[in-house]
Design a protein around this nucleic acid. Structure first.
Lengths: 335, 335
DNA sequence: GTGAAAGCGCTAACAG
DNA sequence: CTGTTAGCGCTTTCAC
């Protein structure tokens, strides 16, 4: 592979001249410029990003540190990734995918020291040691999600409080009195994962506010567990006529579990899910949702980070409130 | 950030000694070793991957060049990514995500020259200019998919010929005489995307072999188009009692389109899909499938590439033949 | 408008 | 067993 030295030699100019015809950061006479460009095309020259990065202390590459749970529920994570990668491509940045292998906090920031300019984190806990560490080190990052205490941190998140309240309100207005909430696993709730805790709290608050009978259930990971949980909810709590869930596996298991319990949607059971509209329309019946704006969140998270990297003093903390979209899975309470 | 020079100074040793206590590539006395390690921990030293990579001409990072169509059908691509990233993490490699922005072939290999050690390609065409270019330049890569001519190329793919034949055979044995095939878009077929062309050919071959009445349909991208297409197939061709498809959006639209046409699955219409078993179990009814081994393909593709990078002279061309799994969507022909 | 040279952080060949 | 040094490919200051 040809380097700048090769180009300089062939064009009969100095190394710095080659660099400057490339960057345009200082004037180069047309004739010299022409010679250099000719040499480049002759030698099929491509600048080496590594040399440049070492010098510039910037790689124009960011990393997404996604949870290991990724492999368990790819459906709910891939739209984030799509959004992020669309934004990074747009802005000519690279995107590196990292797994959160363990809680060894040093590892991830430092393992590839110098390789990336910034980091996007997901599955944020209310108290998140990773976030603390990054903030302490003054490392550029943004969150998809947010902590309990977020001073000086850029993030984008769904407003889960709003989302759950709106879901419960919708069902309450349809006459439902017994509304269940199916959350994620106990382990995740206890680990303090932000959206899981916030959803749980918002749900209890909402049912209280509407004077409803509410039960919340947790659900272990996996499709089978989701199916079993929904079936259990429906059979052991026959008074329940509506279910709210933010768990994508639950929302996909729910139709089958309902039919298998001899119930119909929405005549016997109404459902409101916090999933992407795309996903909501892939099921039969289609699901009434608060449209989870995963892709948009990915876009915004990446955009915020890149702006920050490019020196803009942005400070943004965004809580999205996407609309309730009524589809086939929710209807008047018939009981 | 502390560098090796800082460590060397603080420990009162030479730069090379620091490097070697780190790499272990030459013996270091216990005392010196101890001093160096102490200095490292004092200064919270982390090696800079960029310096190392520039020197080593290796970044231990590979890139996945995925199609722009990614955003259109993330569901069917994401399991590949999961598989790849699991494998790369396992082997301590980084994974960079690239979009195939345009057909400007030079761009992608060279844009980030030096940044990656190898490339994984997807959505391979029978005649693929990207593949030709990479092979010409002797650049390390593997394919998920394969070309018409694959000499010296490492790849992993599903055996679509086998998959389609097995699907048709299953339906034929259930007594179906009129079996439709719903493929991807005309544009993709005409572009010569490998699996789309191979599926089409295999289907026609299979129906001929079984003496069946077969119709193949193409389907434009998107959920709405998928729904419309399936409905059209069912209403305009009432003799059809079974559908085979490798299109994930079709297989998700198919249940709703069928019900909306007043037909039941599998009593009136049987379905066999080429999708992941995971996806097959998320729908109601669950789908009979040739289990698309996306994750496994991702794993194998990444593994092949990394082995190649590490000097093994592997030459492997793998065509997977996953089992037919009978679920709720296929049954005896009742007409 | 152009050239010479230093140096980003690391590895490894060479010399003791 | 340890130290000195060249150099990976690039950008940028300094001098002309």
């Amino acid at each position: 592979m040809a380097t700048m030295v090769d180009i300089a030699k062939r064009a009969g100019v100095a190394l710095s001249t080659v660099s400057h015809t490339l960057s345009g950061k200082r004037p180069v006479s047309p004739e010299v410029r022409e010679k250099v460009l000719q040499a480049m095309s002759d030698l099929n020259y491509q600048p080496n990003a590594l040399g440049r990065a070492l010098r510039n202390k910037s790689t124009r590459t960011i990393a997404l540190l996604y949870p290991t749970a990724f492999s368990d529920i790819p459906e709910s994570h891939f739209e984030f990734v799509s959004g992020i990668v669309e934004e990074t491509s747009e802005r000519k940045y690279g995107l590196l995918l990292w797994t959160n292998t363990d809680e060894d906090q040093e590892v991830f920031t430092m393992a590839q020291q110098g390789f990336i300019d910034g980091l996007i984190l997901m599955e944020i806990r209310l108290e998140d040691s990773r976030v603390k560490m990054l903030r302490d080190r003054n490392y550029p990052f943004t969150l998809i999600g947010h902590c309990r205490e977020n001073e000086g941190i850029n993030f984008v998140d769904l407003d889960f409080d709003y989302a759950i309240h709106t879901s419960v309100e919708h069902l309450a207005q349809l006459g439902h009195k017994h509304i269940a909430f199916v959350n994620h696993s106990v382990a995740q709730l206890e680990a303090g994962v932000g959206y899981i805790v916030r959803s749980e709290e918002a749900y209890h608050h909402a049912v209280e506010q509407w004077g409803l009978d509410g039960h919340s259930f947790s659900c272990e990971p996996g499709l089978d567990a989701s199916y079993t949980t929904v079936k259990m909810v429906l059979t052991q709590h026959p008074e329940i006529t509506a279910i709210v869930t933010g768990n994508i596996l639950v929302s996909s298991a729910i139709t089958r579990a309902t039919y298998d319990s001899g119930l119909r949607i929405p005549e016997d059971v109404s459902i409101v899910a916090l999933v992407t509209s795309r996903f909501a329309e892939m099921t039969a019946p289609t699901l009434t949702t608060i449209d989870f704006p995963s892709r948009k969140m990915g876009h915004m998270g990446a955009e915020m980070l890149i702006r920050q990297l490019e020196g803009e003093q942005v400070s943004s903390q965004v809580l999205l409130r996407p609309p309730l979209t009524i589809r086939q899975s929710s209807g008047l309470c018939m009981r």
